[in-house]
Amino acid sequence: MNHIIATEKLNLFYNDFHALKDINMKMRANTVTALIGPSGCGKSTYLRLFNRMNDLIDGVKITGDVRVEGKDIYEKNTDVVDLRRKVGMVFQKPNPFPKTIFENVAYGLRVNGINDNGFIKDKVEQSLVQSALWDEVKDKMNKSAFELSGGQQQRLCIARALAIEPSIILMDEPASALDPISTAKIEELIYELKQNYTIVIVTHNMQQAARVSDHTAFFYLGELIEYGETKEIFTNPKDKKTQNYITGRFG
C-alpha cells in the first residue's frame, strides 16, 4: 500500500502536557482524511506535525516517527523549507498577505527563488483556476487581497498553497469562518483537488467530515480513538466515545 503519510508511536508534549499519545496512523495518497474531535483533543496539533508548524511553538517535544513520502521528517538533516514546499497548508481564518491578489499567489514561488515572470504569471493563473477563483478575480489581479470577501480570500489562500505544487495539503478548519455558500464552494474544491493531492482536513463540522472525506480519524484527549473509512465511522462506530461524539452527545 502506498502510504504518503504515516506516524508511528507518535507522542507530543507541550512542556509537561502530553498532547498526543501514541498515535499510529497511515494515510494513502489522493485521499481526503478528516480529523475530528472536540476542542483541545490534539487534532490541529497532529495536523501541524506534517509541515513542522509546531516547531514555532516553544517547549514542544516529539517522540516517535512522522513519515512523509517515506522519509522521517523530524530527522536532524531534514530541510524544513523543502518539506513545506511539498506539504501546503490552509488555515482556519483566511489569512492573505497585505499584497495584491497576484502577489499573494506568486509569493510561494518567489520565496522559493523563482524569478521567471512568465512562469509565475502562468502558474498564478493556473492556481487560481484550480481554486475556482480565476473568473472572479481575473480583472483585479492588482487589487489588494483584502478587498475580496472572506470566502474568496480563503480560496485565494488555497490557490496560494497550490501554486508551489505540493503533494499534500493540510487544511485546518478551512471553512469554519465562512458562510454556508462559501463553505459549499470550498467543499466542492476539496472534492476536485483530491484527484491530484492528498488532503488532511481538521473540522468541527460533522456533516462536512462526512461529505468530503474518505477516511475519518476521531481524536479524544490526545488519543486516536478510532480511524477508518468515513462511511464506517459515521454509520457503525466501534467505540462508544466516537458514537457519542458524532451523535452530538458531547464536544
Binding site: 523549507v81 523543502d82 497548508m89 481564518k93 489569512n95 498577505f97 510561494g108 520565496v111
Partner: peptide, 11 residues
Amino acid sequence: AMKEASLALGA
C-alpha cells in the same frame, strides 16, 4: 496566522 502562512509556503 500571516507569518505561519508565509512559513508554510516554504519561506
